[in-house]
Amino acid sequence: MSELGADIRRETLISNADPEDFLALLKPRVMSLVVFTALVGLVLAPGSIHPVMGAIAILAIAVGAGASGALNMWYDADIDAVMKRTVNRPIPAGRVSREEAFGFGLLLSFLSVMVLGLTTNWVAAGLLAFTIFFYVVIYTMWLKRSTAQNIVIGGAAGALPPVVGWAAVTGSVTLEPVILFAIIFLWTPPHFWALALVKSDDYGRAGIPMLPNVAGEKATRLQILLYTLILLPFGLAPFSMGFGGWFYGAVALLGSCAMLLWALRIFLARTEDGLRRACWRMFGGSIAYLFALFAALLVEWCAGRLAPALSAMRGALS
């Protein structure tokens, strides 16, 4: 065999991947947000689930999210290779082949849906399968490269985990998880457009039609402000609907003020440097905002569970 032929054969047949590279395909940071929001959906749902089964359900949802991340990297390997932010991902860096990522993502998708279905119910499993399908096919393969509204519609995939968590307990979907869905769904545009404003060169080089590249910087600033304004009442909705208490209400109100301030700073920024700083603040701050809302719901749930146990303990001691 020629030297070139042998090299090609070696590259095709011999994997250079470490197990850590396959873990990186799962986008662990995105996974952690998915785990957290799904957990909140699961614990807030009326009814009960055995803690072990609940933990397995969360694991299945996390693996499902990771699988869609791997399939996203499989399909987007070409654009990942030209963007600074993604050039070190396992496929463009040459550590994992596209075929390996595809097989890995497909296998984990199947396993996660099966495990969730067997552990809880098939409504939750169906929702998880739909989430993976929506993220991979609708967002990654279709919207991402074809419309500036890519992350608006695609955000639905990232917003579904609390609904899946809720359905894992109840086997159905009611208004409460839809509100949680709406919060993440409406949070996505200001969060990602803030990043897109500072990374527009990167997205432009990769040919992704992000809003700043298509509609311009001014329109994006306005859209960030508008989506933030629409988001805020939804952030407060759990309090007004009664499944978020006073603590949640206070956190949501403070968070809403901060989000509005960050969006206004982006909208009113006059210098290039000021805009960059405002965008980074919105990007990081919006993660903290979303985390705080869901954490507040979780804290209230824990407090609600602990209070009777503590008073019973106090009664037994006195």
């Binding site: 042998a6 054969r9 070696r10 994997s15 250079n16 991947a17 470490d18 197990p19």
Partner: peptide, 16 residues
């Protein structure tokens, strides 16, 4: 194809 030592080590890690 004969694996190099590094490739063998990676393969063993993946197998584990």
């Amino acid at each position: 194809i004969r694996l190099t030592e590094e490739e063998k080590a990676r393969q063993a890690k993946r197998n584990r």
